[in-house]
Amino acid sequence: MLYNLLYPLSEHFIVFNVFRYITFRTIYAIITAFILSIIFGPKIIKELKNMQISQKAKGYEPERHKEKEGTPTMGGILIILSSVISTLLWADLRNYYIWIVIYVFIFTAAIGLFDDYIKTVKKNPEGLTPRAKFLSQLVVAITATILIIYVDKSGYSTKLAFPFFKRLVIDLSYFYILFAVFIIVGTSNAVNLTDGLDGLAIMPTVISFGTFILFSYLAGHIKFSTYLHIPYVVGSGELAIFCGSMVGAGLGFLWFNAFPASVFMGDVGSLSIGSALGTVAIIVKQEIVLAIVGGVFVLETLSVIMQVGFFKVTKGKRLFRMAPIHHHFELKGWSEPKIIVRFWIVSFLLALLALSTLKLR
């Protein structure tokens, strides 16, 4: 909004010329989202407490999770509010990709909001049925993928680029729709599985979106993308503003979600964050890089799949003490802050590995 209103004035007032730069607007998107989170955070937490929208134990978590009962949940509303306002303020609102990501973000948040509502207000700890949740996510992911393909002007819409290789690009044709839907829905649920300890999911999220600030900017810049041998996607650079907003909102949420948490994000936060991250990766054609930078999310998901598979094959034996894997470490006696910080460290190192793909080709 500020870009659309103020940049045209640069013809008369040179000071407004700074709005042309994505880097400038990304920095202030981060700051704006963080400030909004700090301002709205206490008010939202207070309102959630008044409405008694709080964490309810399902009965199969580690024993010490009972201490978390009563902590307000659905705090993901804070992330959504801060990041969307910041994005609308600093992004070029004529950019189709901005609206596609916001569409995915908000509609998946609505799914999570309804799920949280059933868990907290309706007192059903299981929430939405897996079938209803999955079908709703599919609808959002399919429509988003079709829109991305429709607005693409770069010729890469159905192609898959491989990191570490300069010219290895495979056109998946119609199968790309299935692949992209898998990425969006899979990332959404992966972040949801990771959100089990105070601050565990939000910091890898911040690191992932921080990494995609750079990938979005480079993918939208024809000279940089050509030099680095990555797909050039017209208009994708503007997604750096959305990613920046997510970084700022995520850091602001962490202010209240750090151990011991004053609020949890709930499904309204985790499902929407994951789907938005997956959508950004699809647009900038860095789907495989997403699996690297989001390795913590991948690990958490694989631990659940492996646990279930091993349990069925061995007829009752367990590969881990509990899944997702952060619960395994809890039951091994690791303190919660130790698990959280170590997962953050791993996420940071994976981000560096993802960034190295820009030159290791």
Rank of each mutant, 00 (worst) to 15 (best):
F297Y: 14
I38H: 00
A109P: 02
F164E: 13
D115H: 06
S216C: 14
T32Y: 03
A109K: 00
K122W: 02
A219E: 08
T108V: 14
P42C: 11
M265Y: 10
S335E: 15
H12S: 12
I148E: 05
F13C: 07
T279K: 01
H221Y: 12
I148L: 05
R361Q: 11
K122F: 01
L302V: 12
G248Q: 05
M246L: 15
K46V: 03
I142A: 14
M246K: 02
K56V: 14
P125W: 03
K46C: 03
N50P: 02
I305V: 13
Y217E: 05
Y21H: 10
V191T: 09
E63H: 07
S83P: 09
Q137F: 02
I273N: 03
I79W: 00
L135E: 04
M322L: 14
D92K: 02
G309V: 06
S272K: 00
L88H: 01
S356R: 04
S356D: 15
L135Q: 03
V151R: 03
V280H: 04
M203D: 10
N4F: 01
E300I: 04
I282C: 11
L277S: 10
H65I: 07
I283R: 05
K223F: 02
T145F: 08
I213C: 09
V139M: 08
R318Y: 09
